[in-house]
């Protein structure tokens, strides 16, 4: 129930709308229960119903900026392979994180994580929230967002990288991060070496 409400909240952006959406989805699911062939897919099925209702009833009036990339072809998501990942990595972030000054890092992260999440482009923000906060599986998130599960996987990979980039930028802006020149070779080189 919390997950269903969480998804509705991410989609509509307003708690009142989220409540209505969940109530409608549950009613619809209840009426259509006979059409569900495999009860094991109940959760995914419920997310799909929720999403369909959202598209037909709420999306037009949603306060959230309508996410453009939801309608992009899946291919543009799939192209995010490990090479793109490497190119996007904020290398110094990991090194900075591994520094002994953990207290500074912890305090910073506690303060900045919400605003960093908010800065993510809609498609990545919603996907990260559905998976990491609401605890959906890739398949369930795929149903809720109407994209293939492979897209969810690549969005998670990219969403994490983007989040680190934003945090790294924020740390630099706050004067907390200095480039780690004494830490040896960049991450790509460590990777290709192994």
């Amino acid at each position: 129930m919390d997950a269903l409400y969480g998804v509705a909240l991410r989609l509509t952006g307003k708690s009142a709308d989220a409540e209505d959406l969940v109530a409608e989805a549950v009613t619809k699911a209840w009426c259509a229960l006979d059409s569900l062939e495999n009860r094991a897919h109940f959760r995914s099925w419920l997310f799909r119903i929720l999403r369909n209702l959202f598209i037909s009833n709420y999306r037009k009036q949603s306060v959230r900026p309508v996410e453009i990339s939801w309608s992009l072809p899946a291919a543009s998501d799939e192209e995010y392979d490990i090479c793109s990942w490497l190119a996007e990595q904020p290398n110094d972030f990991l090194q900075w994180w591994a520094n002994p000054e953990r207290e500074v890092y912890n305090r910073f992260l506690g303060e900045q994580i919400m605003s960093a999440i908010e800065e993510l482009p809609e498609a990545f923000r919603v996907t990260v929230l559905l998976i990491n906060v609401e605890g959906l599986t890739y398949d369930e998130a795929a149903e809720a967002l109407g994209v293939p599960a492979g897209t969810i996987r690549s969005r998670m990979k990219r969403g994490r990288t983007l989040l680190q980039k934003v945090l790294w930028q924020q740390a630099q802006d706050a004067g907390l991060a200095v480039q780690c020149q004494d830490k040896g070779e960049p991450y790509e080189q460590q990777l290709t070496r192994s």
Partner: peptide
């Protein structure tokens, strides 16, 4: 750690 922070950041409970 980052994932745990994200998880804690905005857990929503159905009212």
């Amino acid at each position: 750690e980052l994932t745990a922070r994200v998880e804690k950041s905005s857990k929503s409970r159905a009212p």
